[in-house]
């Protein structure tokens, strides 16, 4: 019986069931919703959210109320940097990725240093960083959109690379595998869980908890920068608030994917499924012929329902 309960509370299973159910509902409401090319399109959108959520996932796993609210601004920054580096030229795509990822990584390191060595709460540190980056972007660009994506990058995100599947999905699949291997099979991955679940114990066993946490924030920034390049590949050009829409959804994807906001427990596979479920939910609500307000209310309500299943905190005991 308890085994059944455990299974029913397994985040991977719940997300998978939610994804299937949403696909069926979508197909019933609007035939063709679950067609192959439609699914590929939805997966592409999920991939962008999912890659952003990878960074968020690492920071949250690391514990100490880890969260990165600056990820949206980092995505915008990555998109703007990439757009200006490329300005439509295919040859500059590798440089664009490198520049955006480096910028994101450096910003992430600053977040990490503030959180660990200055002991600023992550929520405020990254909120302040978000303001700094957004403000910096507005000041530098004067609010005028600049830069555009190279054709090959847009093809990478939007057009088929192999069997009708765009390149970004292969990259995302690789990230999912690499994250799983890193978290479950490497020393660094295990130390993330150790630091996230019991920092003092981790320090006593000799783990450099602070350095690990700084690196996690750095990686979150790196994923943010990478997402930024994907975003400009998806939309073609960038505006300075293009990343804002990913901030809280990236946290939600992590939570409905079964990673505890308290840190130390969860997996990126769950987060990836969470990102797909989130994108599907929004898509189904769009196909339902509802007014905007109704969609919003159902979206918020469904999120609460999903959290009811496993986003809850432990009961206090005497």
């Amino acid at each position: 019986m308890s085994r059944f309960v455990d299974l029913a509370k397994n985040p991977l299973l719940i997300s998978s069931v939610a994804i299937l159910a949403l696909l069926i509902i979508g197909e019933l409401v609007s035939p063709g919703f679950a067609r192959g090319d439609q699914i590929v399109r939805l997966l592409t959108v999920s991939a962008i959210l999912g890659i952003a959520a990878a960074g968020q996932n690492l920071v949250i796993l690391g514990g100490r109320e880890g969260i990165d609210l600056s990820i949206g601004a980092v995505i915008s920054l990555g998109a703007v940097i990439a757009g200006n580096v490329m300005s439509g030229s295919d040859a500059a795509i590798p440089l664009a990725f490198a520049a955006a990822c480096c910028a994101g990584f450096l910003i992430g390191l600053v977040n990490g240093l503030g959180v660990t060595y200055l002991r600023i709460p992550p929520l405020v540190m990254t909120l302040g960083m978000m303001g700094v980056i957004q403000g910096g972007l507005v000041v530098l660009s004067r609010g005028v959109p600049s830069g555009n994506a190279a054709p090959a990058l847009m093809a990478f995100v939007n057009r088929s690379a192999f069997l009708g599947i765009p390149g970004i999905l292969f990259v995302w699949a690789a990230i999912i595998v690499l994250m799983a291997l890193m978290l479950k099979r490497t020393r660094f991955g295990w130390s993330i869980y150790a630091v996230g679940s019991n920092e003092n114990a981790a320090i006593l066993t000799g783990l450099p908890a602070r350095r690990i946490r700084v690196l996690l924030y750095g990686l979150a920034g790196l994923f943010g920068g990478f997402t930024g390049v994907c975003v400009i590949g998806y939309t073609g050009n960038s505006f300075i608030s293009v990343g804002d829409q990913y901030v809280l959804p990236s946290v939600i994807a992590v939570v409905i994917g079964g990673t505890s906001l308290a840190g130390g427990a969860g997996s990126y596979t769950g987060t990836a499924l969470g990102a797909i479920a989130l994108v599907l939910l929004q898509s189904v609500l769009t196909t339902l012929n509802l007014e905007f307000w109704g969609r919003q209310v159902i979206f918020g309500g469904t999120l609460l329902l999903l959290m009811l299943l496993y986003g809850r905190q432990a009961r206090l005991r005497v």
Binding site: I67, L123, L248, V251, I252, V255, L261, G300, G301, L303, L304, M307, L308, G311, R312, Q313, A314, R315
Partner: peptide
């Protein structure tokens, strides 16, 4: 219901 405050108040 012991929900997480950040994600709950976002929802």
């Amino acid at each position: 219901l012991r929900f997480q405050p950040i994600v709950t108040t976002f929802a």
